[in-house]
Design a protein around this nucleic acid. Sequence first.
DNA 1: TATGAATGAGCATTCATTCAT
DNA 2: AATGAATGAATGCTCATTCAT
Lengths: 198, 198, 198, 198
Amino acid sequence: MAIIVDKVEKRRNIALSCSELLLENGIKNLTISQLAKTAGIGKGTIYEYFKNKEDIVFEIIKALIDEFKSELEVNLKNYTGVRDKVFNYFDFIFNDEKYKNHRKIYIEFLAITLTSNSQEMIDFNIECKDDLLMILRGIFQKGVDRREIKKEAMGLVNGLFFLEKGLLIEQNMSKINAKIELKNFINTLFNLIEIKEK
Amino acid sequence: MAIIVDKVEKRRNIALSCSELLLENGIKNLTISQLAKTAGIGKGTIYEYFKNKEDIVFEIIKALIDEFKSELEVNLKNYTGVRDKVFNYFDFIFNDEKYKNHRKIYIEFLAITLTSNSQEMIDFNIECKDDLLMILRGIFQKGVDRREIKKEAMGLVNGLFFLEKGLLIEQNMSKINAKIELKNFINTLFNLIEIKEK
Amino acid sequence: MAIIVDKVEKRRNIALSCSELLLENGIKNLTISQLAKTAGIGKGTIYEYFKNKEDIVFEIIKALIDEFKSELEVNLKNYTGVRDKVFNYFDFIFNDEKYKNHRKIYIEFLAITLTSNSQEMIDFNIECKDDLLMILRGIFQKGVDRREIKKEAMGLVNGLFFLEKGLLIEQNMSKINAKIELKNFINTLFNLIEIKEK
Amino acid sequence: MAIIVDKVEKRRNIALSCSELLLENGIKNLTISQLAKTAGIGKGTIYEYFKNKEDIVFEIIKALIDEFKSELEVNLKNYTGVRDKVFNYFDFIFNDEKYKNHRKIYIEFLAITLTSNSQEMIDFNIECKDDLLMILRGIFQKGVDRREIKKEAMGLVNGLFFLEKGLLIEQNMSKINAKIELKNFINTLFNLIEIKEK
DNA sequence: TATGAATGAGCATTCATTCAT
DNA sequence: AATGAATGAATGCTCATTCAT
């Protein structure tokens, strides 16, 4: 009897073995041949585990983003105050050196999704957004609960999140200093929403 | 001298004659052949006036955006209070029915710029950003001058602008309701920054 | 010995279990994977019983054609006169509703054989041809024996048979009305070859 | 001003320069690269003159068939009696040594058309059929007019033509002797339809 | 100045067959 | 005997740009 392979696990393994390649080449410059060679398998084997090129690229990006999200959450544990947490949430997203390529890939993926009509891509983007948004909302909520910030601040969470996305994109193009922009905005904002002790 | 002026004018004329085409086909689906045919000139002639495809697409997009900006400024004249102006600034950008295709093209242009390394594109994006940002800053500044809002609010302008960009993109993918999101954010914000009369 | 018999029988069983699939998908759209799944066996097992894809497709087509031939002979028993039998021989081949898909598959098989060099395919085609030809010749011979038609008519049998093949193909492409064409030809022919009683 | 090329003529020239290649390689084994190289032009240039691969293959086949038809008509001028003309009509179609490869290509084309759904291919096949059929009908008509054959013979023309197609195909597979088959059939037929002088 | 004919690199995908277990 | 995981060859087509006229 032939070996029965765990398809899900093999998918993941192939994807993982190719994540380096994706981070370095970018999405568009990736060929199935390269992927197969990198994964040490035949081109046809790719298609045993993935529907098409989009499918495998997705799988890799998902793995990269999952890794990024976990790391973000771990990182946030180092901070306690709301303002600190928010600062570091964005600082991690924008500046963490280790995830430079992750950012580059995410931007490219965003660009592709913007002009593609793939529902799958769109859904994945929504999922990503929701996950990161939930983390940010959690930070704010805790701040409200601890009476660090006014409860009206909750109305700013979504906006702040979209701001981050806009800034991420703008940073990629305008060479603006996202760090300073954010610092300014967040400081101004917190001065308005923070509850000052007497 | 006359020749140079002619070149500049012919560039503009060619671009203008093709703006409809761009709005309807999008950037990627536009071919030099189509452009030449629409402009009523030969393919080679395009290259007499434009460096490459990017160059002519730019020229067209610039014209479209200029038109959009003028219209935005005209539209804003109908409103007086800061909050109203800000609302309508964003409402125009996000929802004006007449500029549906402009938005679509801008998004596509953004996507292309995100993954291209063309300095020219980047510069044009900065220019665009600066123009629109200046309008928004003007609105805020006038509000501060008139003591409608606290002067600290100026620190929020840039952020608000990036928020708009992020929302524009997100709206394109997540089917979020940009209007409601903005309303929430701006209302929350203005409740914090508005100077209440005694 | 028993093993060999089993092999032959298993071949037949696999083929039979797949004949529906072939009739519905056609030859080109048939994959080994589908065949294996339909037969309820593994892909590798197909190759235990069949040399290659061609081999199994053959086996199925043979079964289909055998079925068709038997049915044709049964059907012909309903008619007695030569002219009637010939009419119905062709009518069955061209028009029997029940065998629509059989015809479609036969045409496809013919097309493949035309451009393949497989001796096996060629031999099978000869066999098919000979079987059907023999039936037609039998009809004519009986007509001659019964003095319904002139004995020279025997020289027309082969030609009539090839005509049928040509018509079958042409019908598939030209949307000619094979039934009328045949009626015309056979009527004209029989008027020439029939022995008119005083 | 750039040169204006006669597209129709260039199509024909490209097609003609590739007809040898088609005759030798067959249709399926033909690649666009080969065609371009043979025609001494770039791959892209092919697509300036032809919609797709099918389009150029068609053009070549049409040229080959046109050549074949002209030659057939020239050849027929050498014969006068109906029986002779009919014999040579078929003899030319089946046996002319010079057109061996033409026959091979025609068969391959037929096979492709049989399983394709291209209306263009089908239409071309009908056109071919009609042209050749008209020649055959002309021969018979003249025979009737000259009272060489009975007028009922006209009812046999179509059938005879389909017979030819069937025979052409069968010959390709069954290694039957088309010449003898035809001789038999035609002789038998003419013995029935010829008007014998007292 | 204007033209339009010519160009050619670059890549996803299918599926019959093999063979280790 | 039975299986199913792995394989890899092979090819049409687009379109921005050039340059001879």
